[in-house]
Structure formats: structure tokens, C-alpha cells
Design a protein around this nucleic acid. Structure first.
Lengths: 188, 188
DNA sequence: TTTATTATTGACAATTATGTAAGTAAAGGA
DNA sequence: TCCTTTACTTACATAATTGTCAATAATAAA
């Protein structure tokens, strides 16, 4: 006598449901939250069902990281394709990495032993470099600077803010300041 | 009849022995390598002995992260106290974070849910900010920029280099370029 | 309605991890 | 030499995790 009626989703819906829960747990609990058991319980299904959809724990994690990477790239792409001033582009890039938690995801992907197929991010970066002007070496350094500081702040925002003594309003003004700094440097 | 004579260390020696093994495992295996059982086996002792010295698993991890943080701060302090030009300070800071692997370890600390007592790093950062000139807000932004990009590159050096297309010589020239950029901006 | 497919579940086994308790042995001090 | 301390170990209990397998039920097709 089943008390609750069994919920039967399409494979794609089930996978999305599971991955959504996993993403939330990753943000809240870190890598330790990505156990099949924990995710299944939080998703209200049996852990065997998660195994059914992803094969193994690593399969689930890989699927999660791939999906989040795709989202991140889409966000970055949206931020960069828009016809807006450079400093605002920078701000949107920062927002994409900071607010959505994508930066932390990237860091996990770097640090965790998650083997993923190489994606097409390289080509996107190349297009950014090309769009930045004629001096390729300078453009590369600027991209490295922006991407690096975005990643660093994404991962270490809280301790850096606290230790340096930067409040939220100052932090939100930081991308604009950096944009001005770079435009001023390119003018000189 | 014990085949091997039992090794008895002083508490401090034992703790250092365990933490050294744990640090190596963290670098090689990530957070998953920081189980009491795994560390103990790699250290050639019983896992109960690890518990004896650190109380709990979290205790061991906390001790590890605290010690690594202390090492990192010592390195940064050494790099910053030397009387050398700003661009070289930046270079030494980068070197401290990149070559020693401390940047990655610091990132682990951010991503792991390890609650640590606030350390004295804030005061050091404050002294750096104060030394940077009269404009405190500007100094804070500069410190945030340098520290952020150092952390970001420490964690994501390899993929960033690959995707942007920066070779090692260009990367080693990057700190100097950033130093010039900042000094030029402060002049203007 | 009947049938076939398969998403889903509960039960099971195996492994691993954590922490406890009691006993053992190494080292220093009396 | 004896005694005390405690680092260390073995053994145990418990819980968590992973993955398998057979059974069940929801859904669509026939």
C-alpha cells in the first residue's frame, strides 16, 4: 500500500531534477554534498534511481560539472556579445562569476579530480582577445588580468573583503574602476 | 611478537609527520584524500593514532589548513617586507603563491567547509594598504586587484594559459607588466 | 483493454569511514 | 630498578556510501 503515489518523470526531467538539487548542495555543502545518497534524499527519490540515470557517482558529478560549465559559458557569451561599454562588460562578467556561483564551480573543476572533455572555451577566449585591439600580446595580458582577478575574487571574495576591509558597495564599484584603469592604460 | 618496533614520537613530531602526509595527499588527491584512514595508512600509523592527536577528522583538517595558512602568510610576509621595487614585490608574491603551491592549498581552504578561527592576516593586509599611499580607497582596490589575480592565477594558471594562449615567458613577464600598469595609473 | 517499456523502488552486499575502549610498549623520572 | 605517563595499537561498534538486483508501477503503444 504505497502511501505516496510514485512520481515518474521523463529521463530528461529526472536528470534535470537531480542536477538542480546537486547544484544547490554543491553551493551549500561543497563537494561533500555531492554523494549519491545525499543528493537522492534531498531530491526525494531513491539513490538507486540516481545511479540508474547517471551510472555512477562520478557520472553524476561529471554531468553536473558539464552542465554548469555550459551555463557559465553561455552567461559569459551573453555578457560579451552585448553592445555595451567595456567597463560594463567587465561588470557583467564579474556578476556572472560572482553572483551565480559559477566562479566557485570553475574552481572546483580545477581542483577536484573531475575529468571532463575539453570544451570550446578556448575559442571564445580567442575571440575576446581578437576583439580587444591590434596589440595581441597586450590584449592577452588584459584578458589574463581580468579573468584571473575574476576567478580569484569569485573564490576568495569573503576573506579578501574582510582582510582588506572592503565593503559591498566598494566591491561592486571595483569592476568599473578596473575598467577605467585598463582604458586609461590603453590610451597611454 | 611485534615484527616492527613501535615508533614513538613526541606529540609535536607526530603531528608534523601526520600533517606532512596529509598535505601531500591534499595536493595529489584533493579533499577526498583527507580521510583519517587514508592519511593514517599513508603515514604508516593506525587511524586511531591520528584521532588521538587531533580528536576528530575535522580537527585534523582544521590543523592542516591552519598550518598551511600560517606558512602562506609567512611567505607573503617575507615577500612584502623586503625593500624592493613594487613590481618585484608583485613578482615575489606571485612566485610565493604559484611555485610553492600555496595558492591551490588556500583555494582548498576556501572551498572546503572548514571553519577556522580568524587569523591575523587582516593586520598584515592593513599594513600593506597603509604603505601604499595616502588614498586608502585606491590602495584597497589595488590590493584587492593584486591579491585577487594572484589567487586566480594560482588556481587556474594552466587552463587560463592554454585558453588565452600565453606561454611561460609571457606569464613570467606578467607581474612586471601589472606593476608598470599600476604605477602608471597612480601617476595619472 | 492488453501489452511492452522502463522509471522507480526496496532490499542486499561490500566497502569505507568515524570514533571508542582497553590493552601495550616506549621513554623519562623516582 | 621500579613507576608513571602517554603515545600507540588492536579490536569493536556504528554509520555512511556505493553499486547490484529483482520487483513494482506508471506510461504509452497496440
Amino acid at each position: 500500500m504505497p502511501v505516496n503515489k510514485r512520481i515518474r518523470r521523463s529521463p530528461e526531467e529526472a536528470r534535470q531534477h537531480i542536477l538542480a538539487v546537486a547544484e544547490r548542495r554543491l553551493a551549500e555543502l561543497g563537494l561533500e554534498g555531492l554523494s549519491v545518497q545525499g543528493v537522492a534524499e534531498a531530491a526525494g527519490i531513491s539513490h538507486a534511481n540516481v545511479i540508474h540515470h547517471f551510472g555512477t557517482t562520478q557520472g553524476m558529478r561529471t554531468a553536473l560539472f558539464m552542465q554548469m560549465s555550459a551555463k557559465l559559458l553561455a552567461d559569459v557569451d551573453t555578457a560579451l556579445r552585448a553592445d555595451i561599454p567595456p567597463d560594463q562588460v567587465l561588470g557583467r562578467l564579474f556578476g556572472s562569476l560572482l553572483e551565480s556561483g559559477h566562479g566557485k564551480l570553475l574552481a572546483w573543476r580545477m581542483l577536484a579530480n573531475v575529468e571532463l572533455p575539453t570544451n570550446e572555451a578556448g575559442a571564445q577566449f580567442q575571440s575576446i582577445v581578437n576583439a580587444l585591439g591590434e596589440d595581441q600580446a597586450e590584449a592577452k595580458r588584459i584578458v589574463l588580468l581580468v579573468a584571473g582577478v575574476a576567478m580569484g575574487i569569485a573564490i576568495c571574495r569573503e576573506p579578501l573583503q574582510q582582510m582588506i576591509g572592503i565593503d559591498d558597495s566598494e566591491l561592486s564599484a571595483f569592476p568599473g574602476w578596473l575598467g577605467d584603469l585598463l582604458t586609461a592604460a590603453s590610451d597611454a
